[in-house]
Each structure stands twice: as structure tokens, then as C-alpha cells.
Design a protein around this nucleic acid. Structure first.
Lengths: 144, 144
DNA sequence: ATATGTGCAAATGCTTTGCAACGCC
DNA sequence: GGCGTTGCAAAGCATTTGCACATAT
């Protein structure tokens, strides 16, 4: 990832206009709609490169599909994602990180890494009619 | 899942002799080695049926491959899995469950569900030579 | 100039499915 | 005997890769 190409910029551009997690194919589709002509393989290659470079969050959906979105937060964080629309809330759980390390160490595991993702239905897609106020994507902190 | 067939029994049998998470293909392979003749599609179909019936734990590896193993624990629990050999330790994290519910509720999400898996290298596959005692798969409890 | 990046199409790997044969109940 | 089950091969998907061409630096 060392050169600036029209395609790469377009991909980054598209991602920057996107709040929620999207699959490579959705992103490619979106670009086509926007009039950008970029090969699907190129989208895949760049998403990979960008996430390797730490500029994207990647999360693997239940069915194994990879979803991407631009990082909002630098540190290690987790996501609360709407199963319907992909709307995402980031949150931190420092106590969890510690607990995980402790458990891993107890069992002699090293090089540990963990994934924690929470899936649910956001206000707009919930069957019930919850009233609530906080509906932005700002980072939050859990007490776990 | 209403009839008992030779194939289904063989699959359950194979799973019961297996401590760690295995992919459908690995299970199929194992059965072939054991002299069982069962179609790959049948293995997939039964693994799905069994996990639907709550008799198997399923976890999706980083690359999207589904891994199965028979349930040890009834309740909701998580796994510490060796990236190399699949060796698995189950653990509970009740405080985490609560924290997740709280966060979800705060943001108006409903029908929440979460996945937490910890990957690492077990004692036998760690580059370093950790000394340790606890190396079984008994359930454990985290304070998070 | 030349190492990188791109596009396309073919290949991969896991998983699912259509359909005829099969075998529990 | 009927309906769930199986096997096989084909189809599906998301993703990766080989290779010739294009292009940023």
C-alpha cells in the first residue's frame, strides 16, 4: 500500500461517507452506484491492505462474511451492531480485557487475542417501540 | 432430526470422542479414517441440525469456517481456543453478560446476543516454555 | 524505467441444494 | 408405505489469485 491510485482514494472516500459496517461487495456496489469504476478484486485487495494498516475495523458476521468500516477509535474496542441495518455503536470494556488476559494466563495460553461483538436490533428495527435518546455512534464505556 | 440413522449416530459418536473444536471437513475426514462411510453433505446437514437442537457448540473461526464440538456446559459460556490445535477451555463470564445487556439497553438495542471467543497458543504450541499445572478443559469462571 | 496496482476471469474453499435412491418408523 | 435421510454432483458465495496491462513515482 504505497501508491496513491484513483481506485484506492475512491475506496477510502466511500468508506469515509459510511457510518456502518459494510461487506466488500456492498462497498463495491455502492461505488458502482456512485459512478466509480473499480474492480471487485481491487476493492478486496484494498480493504485487506487498509485493515492490515489499521485504518479499518473488520468484523466477521455470523455467516463468516467480513464487514468493514473506517476506524473511529484508536484503541481496542468492541461493537454493538444492528443485525438489520448495520448501525454500530463502539464501546470499550477495559475490565474485560484484563479478565481475558487473566484467564488465558491461568491456562498457559500465550499470544492471546479476542473477539467480542454484540448483535441486536437497533431502535429503528426493533419489533418493540422503545423510547430512548442516545442514538449516536460515540464511543462508550462498559463497566466490565 | 427425527430419525435415528447409522450416519447420525456415527457423527454423534465421533463428536463425543472429540474434545476440541473441529470443522465439518475435519470431522468428515476423521470418520473416513475410522472406517465410517458418510457423505460430506450429510455431515454438514447433521452438524447444522445438532447445533440447531442445542446439542453442539458452534464457533466461527477468523476465516469464516465453522467449528463444532459437543456441548460440555448447558449455560451460556465462552471459549479459549488454541489457534494451532483447537484445544479448548470453556469459561463463564456472568459479569460480562450483564455489562453487555446494560450497554445494549442504553442504546435501545433489543434481541441482543453476543459472541466472545479468545484465541491464543496453548502450552504445547506456545513459542515460549511456560510451566503450568492446570491443563484440563473443566469449566472455569472469570470475574468479568 | 520500474516496481506497484489494477482488471478480469479462473480458481479456491466452505457450505448448500436438487434430486433420485434409501431405509427408519 | 411414506416421509425423513442420504449421497452425489452441481450450484452458490465470498474471497483469492494468475497474469497481462496500466500507472504512480
Amino acid at each position: 500500500m504505497q501508491r496513491n491510485t484513483r481506485q484506492r482514494s475512491a475506496i477510502v472516500e466511500t468508506l469515509s461517507r459510511q457510518d456502518d459496517f459494510r461487506s466488500a461487495q456492498q462497498i463495491h456496489e455502492q461505488m458502482k452506484v456512485d459512478g466509480e469504476t473499480v474492480g471487485l478484486a481491487t476493492v478486496y485487495r484494498n480493504l485487506q491492505a487498509l485493515s492490515r494498516a489499521g485504518r479499518l475495523d473488520v468484523l466477521v458476521a455470523g455467516d463468516g462474511e467480513a464487514l468493514y468500516r473506517q476506524c473511529e477509535d484508536d484503541g481496542h474496542h468492541h461493537h454493538l451492531v444492528c443485525r438489520e441495518c448495520g448501525r454500530t455503536v463502539e464501546f470499550l470494556a477495559p475490565k474485560l480485557e484484563n479478565a481475558m488476559s487473566a484467564i488465558a494466563q491461568e491456562h498457559g495460553f500465550t499470544d492471546v487475542d479476542h473477539t467480542l461483538e454484540v448483535f441486536g436490533l437497533c431502535t429503528e428495527h426493533s419489533g418493540t417501540e422503545h423510547a430512548q435518546t442516545d442514538r449516536d455512534d460515540r464511543s462508550d464505556e462498559a463497566d466490565a
